[in-house]
Design a protein around this nucleic acid. Structure first.
Lengths: 207, 207
DNA sequence: ATACAAAAGTGAGCGCGCTCACAAAATACA
DNA sequence: TGTATTTTGTGAGCGCGCTCACTTTTGTAT
C-alpha cells in the first residue's frame, strides 16, 4: 500500500505535468484526454481514475495556482494597506500565479467559474470561487466591514472579477497595463459600493 | 424557386419551434440535435444545413428575443427618463422577452456571451453583444455622454450585465425581486462610474 | 418531354469525453 | 507459501455534435 500510494501520486503528477504541456501547446479544446493519458504512460480510461473530467483536470491546476497566489498575498501583505490597495494586491497575486496557464485558461475559467446555472458543475470550480470570496470577505472584515456584505455586493464582485480574468487572459498590452486599469477601476467601484451601502442597506436613493 | 424558398422557411421555423420545445423540456445539454432534427421531420445532418451548430441554433432564439426586447424598449421609452431609469428599462425589456427561454438559457449564454477568448466563437453571440453595447452607447449619447466611454467602462458594463443574466436565469424569488435589486445596483454603479470618469479615489460621493 | 445543373436532403461515419465489464496487480490473512 | 479481497489499470464501446460523399428533388433550357 505504501509503494502503491507513492505510485499513485507519481501517476497523478505525471498526468498534471503532461496535461499542462499539451494544454499549453494546443489549447484546452484541441487537446484530447487520450493524448494526455498516453503521454503519461497510461491507458485512455485510467486518466478518469485520477480526475473525473477533463475540466476538473484543468481546474486542478488553476486551483493550485490560486492557492499559491493566496499564499503570496499573505506573505506580501503588511496589514497597513488601504482596502482598495489590499484587494488589488490580492487579485494581482492570483493573476501572477495563473500566468503560466494563460494560454489555455479561457474555456476552463468560462466553464468552471461562471455563475450561470449548469447541469454538471465542476467541484474544483465551486471551491475556488468560495475560497476566493471568503478571502475577500476576510479582507473586508479586517478593514472594518464586520457585517458580511449582502448577496448583491458579492454577486457584483464576482461578475467584475470574472470580467477581469476574461480580459486579462488575452490582454496583449506590454505589461498588462490594460488589465491593471480594469482591475483598478473594478476594485474602486466595489469599494465604493460597499462603503455606500454598508450602513443603510438598500436605500441608497440616487434619484 | 418560390415554392422551395417557402419550404425552406417552413423547415427553419419548424426546427426552431421543436428545438425550443425540446430545450425547454430537457435543458440545452440533455437535448440532442438528432432529436430536434427528427422532431422537425428531417434527417440528422439536415439540421446543419440550417444552423451551423447547436449553439447557434439556440442563440438564434436568444438573439430574436433580444431584438424584440429592444423594440419593446423603444416603444415604451418616453425620452424623459433619467439615465439610470432608461438603462433599467432597456435591460428589463430584454429580460422580459428572454423569459420563455429561461429554462435552457444558462449554458447558452455562458458559451456565447462570455468575454473569455475561445476557439470557435458563435457569430450570433458576438452580434448580440455588439448590438446590446451599441444600444447602451446610444442611450448614453442621448444623455449627454457624447464621447464614447472607454473600453474599461464598457468592459465593466458587460461583466455586470452578464452577472445579471446569470443571476436572473435562476432567480426563484417571487417576482425576480432579487434580480431587480441586482440590476438596480449594477446600473447605478455603472452610471456613477461613467459620470465620475477621471474622478479620484472613492470618496467623491454622488452629487 | 428530356437533359442537365444547382440546391437540398440523407445517414454512415469520425473523433471526442467518458463509462464499464473485466483483467491484473497489490494487499491481507491463513 | 497459497488463497481471498480489494485496489488499480485497461480498452472496447456508447452517445454526442458534426462532416461529407452521395442521392434525391427542384428549377431551367432546350
Amino acid at each position: 500500500m505504501r509503494i502503491s500510494e507513492q505510485a499513485k501520486q507519481e501517476n497523478r503528477s505525471r498526468i498534471l505535468d503532461k496535461a499542462a504541456e499539451i494544454f499549453n501547446s494546443k489549447g484546452f479544446e484541441d487537446s484530447t484526454t487520450r493524448d494526455i493519458a498516453l503521454a503519461a504512460g497510461l491507458a485512455a480510461g485510467t486518466l478518469f481514475n485520477y480526475f473525473p473530467s477533463k475540466e476538473t483536470l484543468a481546474m486542478t491546476m488553476v486551483s493550485e495556482a490560486l492557492v499559491q497566489g493566496r499564499e503570496d498575498y499573505l506573505r506580501r501583505c503588511t496589514g497597513r494597506e488601504e482596502l482598495a490597495e489590499e484587494l488589488f494586491l490580492f487579485v494581482a497575486s492570483g493573476l501572477r500565479r495563473l500566468r503560466p496557464l494563460r494560454p489555455f485558461l479561457g474555456p476552463v475559467l468560462e466553464r468552471s467559474l461562471s455563475p450561470f446555472p449548469r447541469k454538471n458543475v465542476c467541484q474544483e470550480g465551486e471551491t475556488a470561487r468560495q475560497e476566493h470570496l471568503a478571502a475577500v470577505q476576510s479582507i473586508l472584515a479586517r478593514h472594518g466591514f464586520t457585517e458580511a456584505p449582502d448577496y448583491v455586493a458579492m454577486t457584483m464582485y464576482w461578475s467584475l472579477y470574472l470580467g477581469i480574468l476574461a480580459f486579462w487572459s488575452n490582454d496583449t498590452s506590454p505589461n498588462q497595463e490594460a488589465s491593471q486599469a480594469l482591475i483598478d477601476y473594478s476594485i474602486r467601484m466595489f469599494v465604493q459600493l460597499i462603503s455606500g451601502s454598508g450602513a443603510d442597506k438598500g436605500e441608497a436613493d440616487a434619484s
